[in-house]
Design a binder for these strands. Structure first.
Lengths: 139, 139
DNA sequence: CACCCTATGCGAATTTTTTGCATAAAAACA
DNA sequence: TGTTTTTATGCAAAAAATTCGCATAGGGTG
């Protein structure tokens, strides 16, 4: 079914609920069997590249109209070596070119389809860094 | 300047000298301050995806003009399940087709963009084998 | 300042990776 | 096929990296 590691549960909770602080998130996680501390949550959020917008956490994403360079952009990670980006139909290539040109250290390769981009990275540490750099490009 | 870890030194030595066995490589490394064992070298070569061609080791890469089928080809691995191949602009599709047609056992799927190909494999063992088979195709 | 929220240095515990040894497996060659 | 050379690997110890909680520092807001 679902990936039961803590990071993915956090992403799931953030997408499904309005979470305004790490303590609330802690409670949600506890309800799902992950009893951890605020410290760890802080570090997890960093790894996920989660950002706080209007007081609530959200997974790294650019909403429609938020950027002039792409119609929208949502990121998820698949394992430690892949970042999956979704755009609106027909926008992936343009976004892919922007990413390629930025020559971000840590990116091993990029492939864009119609509305999806795969970005290969070397490891989990790189993954978090690259994610942040990509979103910086479009912000 | 250069990365001074053992893996990059090995790649450098292999590119600069005709190395026909791991014992010779061991000697070269010793000369450069890396006193290690044949076991480790064997494992390093595997990590690098180094292949033996005509009795000599070479890094997984096809230089411009070296193959009639592709302009150039360089491989890296991203984790245990992905191989990332880079070609010159516009060449990835042609190379991808060649790989697909070869029906290499162990390849779970292939996607080609403009100058990049992602090859999904099941695990690290498969990864090394597949890498060798791919380069055999273009040699 | 007082309060709330988040980030981080540190050390302990855990997990992962690396390494050499011995040896098995494979390849090369007679 | 038998012998030799070359390469791969199971295993256990050592080394390195990661995870985690605690305590606390830092940031922001009123």
């Amino acid at each position: 079914m679902l990936d039961h590691n803590r990071l993915s549960i956090i992403a799931e909770v953030i997408r499904g609920h309005k979470i305004g602080n790490q303590h609330d998130l802690k409670e949600h996680l506890k309800g799902r069997g992950f009893d951890t501390t605020q410290s760890s949550i802080s570090r997890d959020l960093k790894k996920l590249g989660v950002v706080k917008v209007d007081g609530y956490y959200k997974t790294p994403s650019i909403a429609p109209g938020e950027s002039s360079k792409v119609d929208r952009l949502d990121a998820t990670t698949a394992g430690d070596n892949l970042i999956v980006l979704k755009t609106g139909p027909g926008n992936a290539n343009r976004a892919g070119v922007i990413i390629d040109r930025a020559n971000i250290i840590g990116i091993l390769g990029t492939i864009a389809g119609d509305d999806t981009i795969f970005v290969a990275v070397a490891n989990r540490q790189t993954q978090a860094k690259v994610l942040r750099k990509i979103f910086a490009l479009f912000d």
